[in-house]
Amino acid sequence: MIFADALAWLVDPVNWTGSKSIPVRVGVHLLYCLGAVLGAAAIAVPLGLYVGHTGRGGVVLVGGGNALRALPTLGLVTFLYLVAGGGAVGVLVGLVVLAVPPILAGTYAGIQDVDRGVVDAARGMGMTGAQRLWRVEVPNALPLLVGGLRNATLQVVATASVAAYVGIETLGRPLLDGLRVLDYGQFVGGAVLIALLAVVLDVLLAGLGRLVVPAGLRLRTQPGRRRSR
């Protein structure tokens, strides 16, 4: 019954027109997600590359990442929203903070996972530190780095829903409105939209990973396929 109500809410033409329609909310939700992931990547990727390449600050990095993961999502977004005096900046900063740990962990782990023998061979060939980083370590770290981006994206897609608590028209709004009036069809419909958006973005990032990750590394991460070949 609930799923029939959710389907009826999803196909209702009223919900597909106007300034608070499903397409508008999907667009706002997507905009916040992309902004948060790109902002987090701009911070976390260089930091993860530096710590992974130099080996300095690894303990601080892991501890700081765990501390950020422990922050309550709704409390952080609401606090930053109030500090920023309202508007989108506080919410976006909160989402960036929550997206940093998985990208940071993926980047750092990817660099650390590179075979030290390969790095030593590059050093023996006379490569500088920067050359080893960009020509050897980064290409080999791409699978885990892209994995960190995917994890961060999925987390942000789910977390951006809480922005509705501070009046922003994301896909969290149907969840709040549905709970307020006990309209569980609307509630489930909003949850379905969030899940579909997460799946679509994950598929797109998986395709991006296949484009940027060298084929040899993809085969290395698929032992069953490697044995069959």
Rank of each mutant, 00 (worst) to 15 (best):
M1N: 08
A4S: 11
A6G: 08
A6Y: 08
L10C: 08
L10M: 13
D12E: 08
N15M: 02
W16R: 03
W16Q: 03
T17D: 09
K20F: 04
I22R: 05
G27H: 04
C33G: 10
G35S: 03
A36W: 01
V37G: 06
L38G: 01
G39N: 04
A42S: 10
I43P: 01
I43Q: 02
T54W: 06
G55C: 02
G55K: 04
V60D: 00
V62H: 09
V62W: 11
G64N: 04
G65L: 12
P72W: 00
L76R: 07
T78I: 14
L80I: 08
A84E: 05
V89A: 15
G90A: 05
L92F: 00
V93Y: 08
V93F: 13
G94Q: 07
A99M: 07
V100Y: 08
V100G: 07
G106I: 13
G106P: 15
T107F: 11
A109D: 14
Q112C: 12
D113L: 02
V114P: 01
G117H: 11
A121P: 04
R123K: 14
M125L: 14
M127G: 05
T128P: 01
G129Q: 09
R135L: 12
R135V: 05
V138A: 11
V138T: 10
L144W: 03
G147Q: 08
A152S: 14
A152M: 11
Q155H: 02
Q155N: 14
V156E: 06
T159A: 14
S161T: 14
A164Y: 03
E169P: 11
T170A: 04
L171H: 00
L171C: 01
D177M: 09
R180W: 08
R180L: 12
V181S: 13
Y184L: 12
Q186I: 01
Q186C: 04
Q186R: 15
V192R: 05
V192Q: 06
V192S: 05
I194R: 07
L197A: 13
A198I: 10
V200L: 14
D202F: 08
L204Y: 03
A206D: 10
G207Q: 12
G209D: 10
G209H: 12
R210I: 01
G216Y: 09
Q222K: 11
P223Q: 03
R225V: 15
R225D: 14
S228K: 13
R229C: 10
